[in-house]
């Protein structure tokens, strides 16, 4: 394949990666922004989302579309509930202390991983996509009569991957509307800015934290449900999303949702493109280098927030 069509293919793969990473990193950023908790178990919520998606689709069987729709709604809700329970059982007990929550979430990481290994087993499990039509894509070339379209062999994308690419903007807009247009969003933003004053104005900060921890985990799980028909569910699959999410959140600026989205697109695209042209390992090396350079140039990240 020529370079142009090959690049387009890589960009599309990058957009799939960026879409999933945006949702996953947004969850991590939301949790850090509101709760000041560095959630090391975030990748495991991603993994749980994928595993529960497999479980739900296996349980329902039948039509792939209906089973997948149930997983798309059910798995994030279940993971969100598990996270809220973990918040209540663990994080609240350590008073959301920044250092102790790091240790606590490392503990949660191993607990979730081992429970999944014991119940789900070590094998990777596939989830059938609800639809998977291959769509051939055109490319162009300069001919004597101007631009001419043609259909290069191998330049195509599945309808499911297009769905994944479209899903992130839809979720982002929904989240933005909730944050800016609803009372719940107002409460979340007030808590993020000043939790003590929020308490003095009747905001139940502990309940807000449990909700935010749940929403953060549910976003990771949603990303996982979207990607699991492409990559399969496995009990060790949380490590990569965790690493990339941390990279994204650091580049974007800790707690900045706008920066997180921008950095997720940047890192997701570069990860996808480099993986197609070279190797996934090189893509991770590149992302880590970008983090190092951003930290040198702008220690607070691209959109590091000013704290009042």
């Amino acid at each position: 394949m020529e370079f142009g069509p090959h690049l387009m293919l890589a960009v599309l793969e990058g957009l799939v990666q960026a879409s999933v990473l945006t949702l996953t990193a947004l969850g991590l950023s939301l949790v850090f922004g509101v709760m000041r908790v560095v959630n090391v178990a975030h990748g495991e919520f991603f993994m749980l989302g994928a595993v529960l998606a497999w479980w739900i689709t296996s349980l329902l069987g039948g039509g792939a579309g209906l089973a997948f729709a149930a997983a798309l709604v059910g798995a994030p809700l279940m993971v969100g509930a598990i996270a809220a329970l973990a918040d209540w059982l663990v994080l609240r007990r350590v008073a959301y202390d920044p250092e102790r929550t790091i240790v606590a979430t490392i503990g949660l990481l191993y607990i979730f991983q081992q429970i999944t290994l014991m119940t789900f087993g070590p094998d990777a499990r596939p989830v059938p996509p609800p639809f998977n039509t291959r769509l051939a894509l055109p490319w162009f070339e300069w001919g004597e009569g101007g631009i001419a379209l043609y259909w290069p062999w191998g330049l195509s994308i599945t309808s499911y991957k297009l769905f994944v690419i479209a899903a992130a903007p839809v979720v982002l807009v929904a989240l933005w509307l909730v944050m800016t247009r609803t009372r719940l969003g107002l409460v979340l933003r007030a808590t993020r800015i000043d939790s003590e004053t929020a308490r003095a104005f009747a905001i139940p900060v502990e309940q807000v934290y449990a909700l935010v921890f749940g929403i953060g985990a549910a976003l990771a799980a949603l990303g996982a449900v979207l990607v699991v028909p492409i990559r399969q569910a496995h009990y060790l699959m949380g490590a990569d999303p965790l690493l990339l999410s941390f990279i994204v959140v650091i580049i974007g600026g800790l707690g900045s949702l706008r920066g997180t989205v921008l950095a997720a697109v940047l890192i997701g695209m570069s990860d996808g493109i480099i993986s197609v042209f070279f190797t996934p390992t090189l893509a991770k090396i590149f992302a880590t280098l970008v983090v190092a350079m951003v930290l040198v140039a702008r220690p607070g990240g691209l959109f590091g927030e000013r704290r009042t």
């Binding site: 107002l186 007030a190 000043d194 003590e196 003095a200 104005f201 009747a202 905001i203 009042t308």
Partner: peptide, 30 residues
């Protein structure tokens, strides 16, 4: 703490402690 304001106690903290990134209308809404 969050149940105490509901009893009718208004608090103006030292240094104002406004929700700086929120608008005037949103602070009032809180």
């Amino acid at each position: 703490a969050h149940r105490i304001p509901r009893l009718g106690i208004g608090y103006i903290p030292q240094g104002r402690r406004l929700f700086g990134e929120l608008t005037v209308a949103e602070n009032i809404e809180i």
